[in-house]
């Protein structure tokens, strides 16, 4: 992976998108490797603080998915 690849911080809901990501893995689908997943118990717990904290620590983009 080259230096220029963006880092995408993703907050995935345990029950929805995390499951989808798991299924995608099990089904051997291919998706970009730029995504760094944080599993959260529920997207309802998301706070603007988390997004800012991510950007502050140098994430190129943030993706929240429920």
């Amino acid at each position: 992976m080259s230096e220029n690849e963006p880092k995408i911080l993703s907050f995935l809901c345990n029950w929805c998108s995390y499951g989808a990501a798991d299924l995608a893995g099990v089904s051997r689908m291919e998706y970009p490797t730029n995504i760094r997943v944080i599993r959260i118990p529920c997207t309802g717990r998301m706070s603007p603080k988390f997004i800012l904290a991510g950007l502050r620590r140098g994430a190129d983009a943030v993706w929240v998915s429920g």
């Binding site: 995408i8 970009p32 929240v64």
Partner: peptide, 25 residues
């Protein structure tokens, strides 16, 4: 900044959105 809504059965949508987000970034 991206928001999306993907059910645990929608692995294709996950791959799709993941790709789009990466492209945008």
């Amino acid at each position: 900044l991206h928001f999306s809504w993907i059910s645990s059965a929608e692995s294709t949508k996950f791959v799709d959105v993941a790709t789009k987000v990466t492209e945008a970034a």
